[in-house]
């Protein structure tokens, strides 16, 4: 699109740059892009408030008239979205807590302790980062069945409570913390565990916050694994619940869109409120597209 050629980097003097033509053009393009970004959301919202005859009029309109709030009631009555929320929340909180716990302990060992085979083991960890989830999914599914965990929260939580990526990220961060702190603590008689708990972890606030958001979001939005291992409303998370809903009400677009709004709204609200944290979290962990 636009000619991004001119306009030298002005980040530092960003106080109040005069609106040059280049900037105006850029604004125009970005606003256009924003509209394109928001249009699907608007279309979703509009459809969720229309009655069926309104939905199927041509040409389609972005403004529901009259506004049909009852769609939401119908949706909630058709599918236990409240239950799905609770499930999602429970799974995401558990996964996040466990994953940060196990990963930070391991990262502490990799980054701060010396032991035989450290480098080799870390290399093995790293090597598996390359392997896509779908390679391990079938054996995991078989394992879950074997353990009789199918359609239980164990299946949803335990296999995802470990993360190579989190270990890697935390280790890199831990290594940046001066070793003198450990040594001073050790002089004072602190155990390794205590150093982890009272020196390293408190000093890792930013990375832990970022990781928390990242893991939580990933777990909340995860779809494939929960789909494979959950089989009843009791364990379905929001994405799986929504997909099930789709399966049953497959041309009732007003209800489906209302369901989508219900599924998206809380996350979007939290995101708008805590935007900065989110963006930090996603960029710090450097895997935005996940």
């Amino acid at each position: 699109m636009t000619s991004t050629a001119p306009a030298p980097l002005r980040r530092d003097t960003a106080r109040a740059p005069a609106l040059s033509t280049g900037h105006l053009l850029l604004h125009a393009a970005l606003i256009l892009g924003s509209v394109a970004m928001l249009l699907p959301f608007g279309w979703m919202l509009a459809t969720s408030l229309k009655s069926p005859p309104q939905i199927f009029t041509y040409p389609p309109s972005l403004v529901p008239n009259p506004v049909v709030w009852k769609n939401y009631l119908d949706t909630v009555q058709a599918m236990p979205f409240g239950r799905f929320y609770l499930n999602s929340l429970f799974v995401a909180v558990s996964v996040t807590t466990l994953q940060i716990l196990t990963s930070s302990l391991a990262a502490f060992a990799f980054g701060r302790l010396r032991f035989r085979g450290r480098e080799a083991l870390f290399l093995v960890y790293l090597a598996t980062l390359m392997i896509p989830f779908h390679v391990t999914m079938i054996p995991n599914f078989i394992l879950v069945r074997f353990l009789r965990w199918f359609d239980t929260f164990y299946a949803l939580i335990v296999p995802t409570a470990f993360s190579v990526f989190a270990v890697f990220l935390l280790r890199q961060y831990f290594r940046g913390i001066p070793v003198d702190l450990d040594e001073a603590a050790r002089m004072d008689g602190a155990s390794s565990f205590r150093i982890w708990a009272q020196v390293i972890m408190p000093l890792s606030g930013p990375v832990l916050a970022a990781l928390t958001i990242f893991v939580f979001l990933g777990s909340w939005n995860d779809f494939l694994w929960p789909l494979v291992v959950s089989n009843s409303h009791a364990t379905r998370t929001i994405p799986v619940g929504l997909a099930t809903f789709r399966g049953q009400y497959n041309t009732d677009w007003h209800l489906l869109m209302a369901g989508s709004v219900i599924a998206l709204l809380p996350v979007l609200l939290v995101y708008v409120v805590a935007q900065k944290r989110f963006v930090e979290g996603i960029t710090l962990s450097g895997m935005g597209g996940r």
Binding site: M37, N221, F223, I238, P239, L264, L268, Y271, V279, I282
Partner: peptide
């Protein structure tokens, strides 16, 4: 950034 936080199913 909004699409990043949305559930892909929705």
């Amino acid at each position: 950034f909004m699409p990043v936080v949305t559930t892909i199913v929705a």
